[in-house]
């Protein structure tokens, strides 16, 4: 346990209780909770906080592993096409009208993510080549994107259209224990697989050939990456829609606090991703707006200027 992880854990331990109290209805921890407040706490805020932690941790860990795998600080878990695949699944559930049935939406989304994972595995085959794999991921992402646009433009009813568009923006509004039940175990399993890949990702720092000379099996590493990123991102999209930037920004920000090996970045990125989503989601809830700000939009709004700052910093370095 190094200092970064301890600090992030402490911050999380502080942020989660605060987030449970914050919202349109503020709860007072020092008075007895009314039955309504108790329901708000246990049926709305608690599952929502758990989802924020889970999805943030998954995105952070997946982003750190992806950047290590592609040896690129600008890589994002979305690159593998798994998030678009899962989103396509969810869109289809709206399109077909299944979305109103309990469990159908997340199941469709998970199936879409699994489909993208299977396609990745089939295309990249057993070569373990990172470049082939990245191109396959981009192909799947653009195919899923095109199919989503198709589904939207042919949407059966205006109602379905607005449902799809709103859902795609990503949010934790109105989520319940139903989402927690599948998102938590899948994300935990995914993070565990990514951690297992840690040593191989470290070796990959030296390039693919040197990594193989250090005993890395590229096919096994690829399998771990597909399954690990697939489970975390797929579960995240199924539970909350598309939430961008977390997987890109969080590892990027934290790298300087680690020894820069990919394996030492995975856990802090998971913790910081969880912290970021808990805080961002609480802010979305308490902002005095007519309707709640969508989490996905909030993060993009936050992420773009942040990224601009990074770019300017890089530009200064180049000048």
């Amino acid at each position: 346990m190094n200092r970064t992880n301890v600090f992030l854990l402490a911050a999380l331990a502080l942020a989660v209780p605060l987030s449970l109290l914050a919202g349109r209805v503020w709860l007072d921890p020092f008075s007895d909770l009314s039955p309504n407040a108790l329901i708000i706490l246990t049926e709305l805020r608690l599952p929502r906080a758990i989802l924020a932690i889970t999805i943030g941790a998954g995105l952070g860990a997946a982003g750190a592993a992806m950047q290590g795998y592609l040896r690129n600080p600008l890589a994002d878990p979305g690159l593998f096409g798994i998030a678009p695949g899962a989103a396509l699944g969810a869109v289809l559930s709206f399109w077909t009208g299944w979305a109103s049935t309990p469990w159908a939406l997340p199941m469709f989304a998970l199936a879409g993510g699994a489909g993208a994972m299977a396609m990745l595995g089939l295309i990249a085959g057993r070569t373990g080549s990172v470049m082939l794999f990245t191109l396959a991921g981009m192909m799947i992402a653009s195919l899923a994107g095109a199919l989503m646009s198709l589904a939207i433009s042919f949407s059966p009813t205006p109602f379905a259209l607005s449902e799809i568009v709103t859902w795609l923006m990503g949010a934790l509004t109105d989520r319940s224990w139903n989402e927690v039940v599948f998102a938590v175990p899948l994300t935990l399993a995914g993070i565990a697989l990514l951690m297992l890949a840690g040593r191989a990702l470290d070796a990959l720092t030296l390039g693919e050939t040197a990594a193989r000379s250090l005993g890395v099996n590229p096919a096994r590493l690829q399998w771990l990456m597909i399954a690990g990123v697939g489970l975390t991102v797929g579960a995240g999209v199924a539970a909350a829609g598309i939430i961008g930037f977390v997987g890109l920004i969080v590892p990027h920000l934290l790298r300087r606090f680690t020894d820069r090996r990919p394996s030492s970045l995975i856990l802090p990125s998971a913790l910081a991703g969880a912290l970021l989503l808990v805080v961002a989601d609480s802010l979305c809830r308490v902002l005095p707006l007519a309707s709640e700000l969508r989490l996905g939009i909030a993060l993009s709004l936050l992420g773009a200027p942040f990224f601009l700052g990074l770019l300017l910093q890089m530009r200064r370095g180049l000048a």
Binding site: R71, T205, L206, G207, S213, R255, R260, R261
Partner: peptide, 23 residues
């Protein structure tokens, strides 16, 4: 094995870099 193009994707400290040989 020492490859021809010695690359390191991340800006590791020398000690950490050498540590990769222990994998």
């Amino acid at each position: 094995y020492l490859p021809q193009q010695g690359e390191a994707a991340w800006d590791l400290a020398v000690e950490t870099l050498a540590g990769l040989g222990r994998l």
